[in-house]
């Protein structure tokens, strides 16, 4: 079966080539984070002498120096957590609810609404951000985390993923059975449907969390007070500060502080994340 015609490479050569390319790409993906790790363990004096591949012992000192500095990164991390966790929770709950409405019920205008949501799925937030800013200013929510959280309720992409998932994993007979048992519609949704949706909810919660965690554009326009800033805004501030005055060890630790927690969480959950990427986006 494995015998190949003379054209092209043999299976062994193709496999070797595949491994070489994969190892090269692995290096390209990880190298930067390796340097980041090494450099955050080195002192400013060591850093100015050039790069060495062996870690030093200044990680804790660098971190303590950052804590004493002007950039409130722990506060920033807490703010980022607040915004991302709330966004993810609201987003998955209400997207599931919306998908449920379209999947289970038959009502007038259903076709129009589901086509509409599909049609607006691709509109980037950037094109409406001007009006969004004016609105937020008018209702007095400028410099508040609320406008970063509440809009997550209406997320067409998450809705679409949930609807796809329901089509394969939520039999209508089950809802029928819950009705016969006398369960109200809202209760059926919360106690029968949501538990069944947990795999999809987990995947989407992770994605929403990460995109909210990494979001820089909109938060940078809305948040102004230092103590309310999220991590990406603080990173931008670090970039715009006069670079050479800085202790480079501190710069590296600050970057590491905003990158490594996500990497750790990702490595724990990678099985679900990598599997979840393809499920929603590609159909059949």
């Amino acid at each position: 079966m494995n015998e190949k015609k003379s054209h092209g490479m043999g299976i062994g050569a193709r496999r070797a080539l595949a491994y070489i390319v994969l190892i090269l790409l692995t290096f390209l993906c990880l190298f930067w984070f390796y340097v980041l790790f090494i450099n955050s363990t080195r002192s400013h004096a060591e850093l100015t002498k050039g790069f060495t591949p062996i870690p030093s012992t200044f990680l804790l000192t660098n971190f303590q120096n950052v804590m004493k500095g002007t950039l409130p990164i722990v506060r920033g991390m807490l703010n980022s957590l607040l915004v991302s966790v709330s966004s993810a929770a609201l987003c998955v709950y209400f997207s599931t609810m919306t998908a449920y409405a379209v999947h289970v019920y038959d009502f007038k205008g259903k076709a129009i609404i589901s086509t509409f949501i599909l049609a607006v799925m691709m509109i980037p937030t950037q094109v409406t951000v001007l009006g969004f800013l004016q609105l937020v200013r008018r209702i007095g929510l400028l410099d508040s985390p609320i406008p970063l959280i509440v809009p997550a309720i209406a997320s067409p992409v998450t809705y679409f993923y949930m609807k796809q998932y329901m089509e394969s994993a939520l039999p209508l007979s089950l809802i029928e059975a819950a009705r016969i048992d006398g369960s109200g519609e809202f209760r059926t949704f919360n106690s029968v449907v949501l538990p069944l949706m947990v795999p999809a909810i987990a995947v989407q919660a992770i994605f929403t969390f990460v995109s909210s965690w990494n979001n820089y554009f909109v938060p940078s326009l809305i948040i102004q007070t230092d103590t309310k800033k999220t991590l990406p805004i603080l990173i931008a501030q670090l970039r715009s500060a006069d670079f050479l005055k800085f202790d480079m060890g501190q710069v590296y630790v600050t970057i590491a502080f905003s990158i490594f927690p996500v990497i750790v969480v990702y490595l724990i959950l990678s099985k679900y994340i990598v599997g979840g990427v393809s499920v929603g986006a590609v159909k059949g």
Binding site: F94, V102, Y105, V120, I123, V129
Partner: peptide
Amino acid sequence: NRWGYIFLIPFIAVYVVFQLVPLVTT
């Protein structure tokens, strides 16, 4: 099926306020 509308309210309301209105004012 009335519940279809009820379950759609949060999405539609938030979408209209935070996406559609800003699009129109933009």
